[in-house]
Design a protein around this nucleic acid. Sequence first.
DNA 1: ATTTTCCCCTGCCGGC
DNA 2: TGCCGGCAGGGGAAAA
Length: 278
Amino acid sequence: MPELPEVETIRSQLSERIPGRRIDTIAVYDEKTVSPLAPGEFEEAVTGQTILAVNRYGKYLEFPLRSGSAIALHLRMTGRLHWRPGSADDGTRFLKLELTFDDGSSLVFGDMRRFGRAWLLPEDGAARRDYWARKVGIEPLGAAFTAKVLEQVLDGRRGPIKPTLLNQSIVSGLGNMYVDEALFQAKIHPLRRAGSLATREIIALHRAMRDRLRVAVAHGGASIDSYRDGLGQRGSMQDYLKVHLHEGEACPRCGCVVVKTRVAQRGTYWCPTCQPEP
DNA sequence: ATTTTCCCCTGCCGGC
DNA sequence: TGCCGGCAGGGGAAAA
């Protein structure tokens, strides 16, 4: 599932290829992808526009256009975004959107489960900043995300730490997999009350979050099942996961058996020895 | 205000 | 062999 490292991998690849390109044609194969826009509205707004950059906000991608507007996109569970040098059909299935550029290259958005979405953002810069401010919280790989900041946003929260870290309006970019990995590395049980963590635990968690995300970016993300990068290739982070999807296997730190439980309606993997129950 | 539950969607897998 | 229920989890709406 695309989380921050997967989306960042795609952003990085697309940012080397797409900025400066003009959108010659756009095909919307599934109106649900751009709803609630009226049919034709998305095409009208982006055809002929030059893409200026490829940005990431949490798990969202943003493509600012010369008009001042921007395309926003979220891959959700099974979305794929592939750039290809030509427009020839590369067998991408479940096509939702297809853009062709002025140099003959193209970008396709496919999504098996139809959760992925694209939006048109307001042209007004202040409105755009407001849009992102309301949607996403702190960028965990940014310089502004310090252990002190993490301590401040967790302070007073009574909910379990796992769903708190999954809440994108607090810290933005971690999903089920990297939360499990970060909590394991920081030796924190997923059901600990977020506001009850000691300062040393918050420092360890902050370090673990950034470390796991950085390592995952370095490996091009994790291709657990459907994820592929912006060029259609698999990532390799799935080979470096320590507890996630490792139910019944030995914990790499203590040798104890990794268990799977359900926290916040999510399959949750953890080590009963390294991450003691609260 | 914060936290929890439900929903969307479809391929896949285990059980019978 | 084939059917079927349950599972997977991103985010957001709705409920608590």
